[in-house]
């Protein structure tokens, strides 16, 4: 089944919040938001991704991500029968400007959007020496830029390459799951900009979230399950060759 826009509307009653208060930017402007009522994550539907790069651009715009670094990026895999273990992967500038045209051959192609998995047992927060990165009560892994030392231990600990040191701020940086948006009833910038619905913000604590039905009826996988990080970015139709 597909998650329609209508359902998203039902799902996020807070979306009705007046625009002015959304823009006001203060957390007090979203008084209906209660952290413990949510457990956020993301569904990525690989068969729907067309590699347009909209999500990467939207993320960079929304979050002022510096050039050359990525809170989300898109990879294009090219897998041939005899090289399942050694796929050919590209991600030119994180897929920000899309991908070169691929010519059909004996291999198969597909796109894999990547982002922070907001792991439940995240190795990055485990290693932070000072408590500058943490999993919030609503399941979002965040970084406190005023407390981070910039030691980069978390960058080393992330198995997915989702973190980087911000070249100007000199602190660790990564996807916040658009925390400033989801707490105000909006969806993330990447989901908002995705033209095909390949990315869906999900709230596992919301019983009305269509994700529950989706997970029941689809073969869903997370990246690198052997890392046992409790990754919460769920991938539908994930090929075995994806790293």
């Amino acid at each position: 089944m597909n998650i329609s826009r209508r359902q998203i509307l039902i799902l996020l009653p807070a979306a009705a919040v007046a625009w002015k208060s959304v823009l006001a930017g203060t957390p007090e402007a979203s008084p209906n938001y209660k952290m413990t009522d949510h457990w956020w994550s993301m569904l990525i539907d690989i068969p729907k991704c067309i590699g347009c790069g909209n999500c990467v651009r939207a993320c960079q715009t929304e979050n002022d991500v510096p050039d050359g670094f990525f809170r989300t990026w898109v990879e294009r895999y090219h897998v041939t029968d005899y090289h399942m273990e050694n796929p050919e992967v590209i991600s030119p500038d994180g897929g920000k400007e899309g991908f070169p045209v691929a010519v059909a051959d004996e291999g198969k192609y597909f796109f894999v959007p990547k982002m922070c998995n907001h792991c439940t047992d995240s190795p990055c927060t485990q290693v932070c020496p000072v408590g500058a990165t943490f999993t919030g009560p609503d399941g979002v892994v965040l970084i406190d830029p005023k407390y981070c030392l910039g030691c980069a231990y978390c960058v080393q600990a992330c198995p997915y390459g989702c973190r980087y040191i911000h070249p100007e701020k000199k602190v660790a940086d990564k996807c916040t799951l658009c925390y400033h948006r989801i707490t105000k009833g909006l969806t993330t910038a990447c989901c908002e900009a995705c033209p095909t619905g390949a990315r869906q913000l999900i709230d596992l604590k919301n019983p009305k979230d269509p994700i529950h039905e989706f997970l029941k009826t689809h073969d869903v996988q997370v990246l690198k399950p052997q890392m046992a990080t409790g990754a919460k970015a769920f991938y539908n139709g994930l090929d075995g060759s994806v790293r």
Binding site: F70, A152, Y160, G161
Partner: peptide, 12 residues
């Protein structure tokens, strides 16, 4: 080959 884009810079 392929690096995750954030891996290209070495931090240590």
């Amino acid at each position: 080959g392929y690096m995750y884009p954030n891996e290209i810079t070495l931090y240590w």
